[in-house]
Simulated scan of single mutants.
Amino acid sequence: MSLVSFEGVTLELGGRTILSDVGFDIEPGEFVGLLGPNGAGKTTLLRAILGLVRPRAGRILVDGRDAARGQRAVGYMPQVRGSADLRWTGWDFVASAAGGHRWGLPRLDAAGKAEVAWALDTVGATALARRPLGELSGGERQRLLLSQALLGRPRLLLLDEPLISLDPAHQRGVVELVARLGRELGLGVLFSAHELNPLMGAIDRVLYVGRGRAVLGTVDAVITGPVLSRLYGSPIEVVRTGRRIFVMAGDTEVEGEAHRHDHHGHAEHHHAGL
C-alpha cells in the first residue's frame, strides 16, 4: 500500500487552481524531493496531505486513510515558524509541540518526557536540550524543529523548505540527517526545496509541480528540457556539469533565481497549524 496517494486531485486556493486532476503515489520509506517554480503550490500540496487544504475534486490518501488534520502518521516541519521565547531551552522548544501542544509548555508525564528525549537523541540534539534558543545556530535550530516533527513517531515526514537561509555546509547536514532518519526509521520523506542539487545523492525520486501539473519520477526522467518546459510554460534547458544539474531559462538559472527571490521574503507563505 502506498504511503501517499493523489487520485485525480484538484486543489484551489483563493480562487486559483493550484493542481488540476493530479495523480501520483509515494511509497513507504521513499525519499522524494518536491520542486517547482516559485508559487507553483509546493506548500499547498504539503498542506493538503496534512488535511489543511481540502481537494476541490479527487481524493488524497495518507497511510491508507483520507488526509485529515492531526494524523499521527505524519510529521511536519513548516516553512513559516511560530515565534518562541529565545530564553527557552532546546528541551522546552521540543516539548512545546508534545501532546498536540504548540508554542506552550505542557506538563508532560513520564512517557511524554521519554518521547521528547527520544526525539532529541534521534537527531543528535541531546546536547542542545539545556541551551537557550538564542544561543543556537540556524542548523542547530533545524535539528530541534526536526525533533518536533518526529514526536508521535510518524511514518511520513513533510519538510517545507528547511534549507532556506542555511549555508551549503548546513544544507548538506540537514539533507544527510533526514536521509539517515529515513533509512533507520523506515520513514517516507517529502522534502520541499527550491534547488535540486542539495538533494542529489539522497533522493529516490523527484516530484516536480508547475502550471497545475505534477510529474513524479527519477531525476533522469523528470529533470529534462521537455518535461520542465511544460511545467514552467517556457523553454527550459537542463545543463549537467559533473554531479550538478542546472535548470536554465536562457542565461538565467531559474532555481537559483527562485531561491534568491524567496530569501528576500516574497515566497509562497501559507501559515499552518496542526
Rank of each mutant, 00 (worst) to 15 (best):
E135P: 02
F6T: 01
M77G: 03
T126R: 15
A67N: 06
A95W: 13
G104V: 10
G51E: 11
G39D: 10
G139R: 08
D21E: 14
A68Y: 06
E12G: 12
G23N: 06
L11F: 13
T43D: 11
R16Q: 12
G139V: 04
A127D: 13
A125Y: 11
R65G: 02
R72S: 11
G8Q: 15
E115V: 00
R102V: 08
A40M: 12
V9M: 09
R59E: 15
R54E: 13
Q79P: 03
P55F: 01
A119N: 05
W118T: 00
G41A: 08
G41D: 10
V116C: 04
L3P: 03
P106L: 05
Q79T: 00
L136F: 09
A125P: 06
S20N: 14
L86C: 00
A73Y: 02
G41C: 10
A127L: 09
L34C: 10
A97G: 09
G104T: 12
D92V: 06
V4C: 05
S83C: 04
R131Y: 13
L13P: 02
P55A: 08
R72C: 00
G23A: 07
E135T: 08
E135H: 12
G112N: 04
L128R: 11
G64H: 10
L61A: 05
Q79V: 03
P28V: 00
R107T: 07
E115P: 02
G82H: 11
E12M: 10
S5I: 08
A48P: 04
P28G: 02
I18C: 07
A98E: 09
H101G: 01
A114H: 03
E140G: 05
D85S: 12
G29V: 05
E140D: 07
R59V: 07
L86Q: 09
A57C: 07
L13Q: 08
E115Q: 12
S137N: 08
R81F: 15
L128D: 04
A117G: 01
L11P: 04
S5W: 05
A119C: 13
L19Q: 11
R56K: 14
L3I: 10
D85M: 10
T17N: 04
D121Y: 06
L3D: 09
G8Y: 10
D92E: 13
A119K: 05
A57K: 14
G58K: 04
L35A: 02
P78W: 06
D63L: 09
V22Y: 15
R65C: 02
V32D: 01
I18E: 08
R59W: 15
P132T: 00
R69K: 13
R131E: 11
A125E: 02
L86G: 03
D63P: 07
I60A: 07
T126W: 15
D21R: 13
T44W: 03
G124E: 00
R87V: 04
P106G: 07
R107W: 15
G23W: 05
V22S: 12
V123D: 11
G104A: 12
L13K: 12
R87K: 10
G90P: 06
A114D: 14
L136Y: 07
L128F: 11
D25W: 06
G138D: 04
V4K: 01
G124W: 00
A110V: 09
P28L: 00
A110S: 10
L136D: 03
E140K: 08
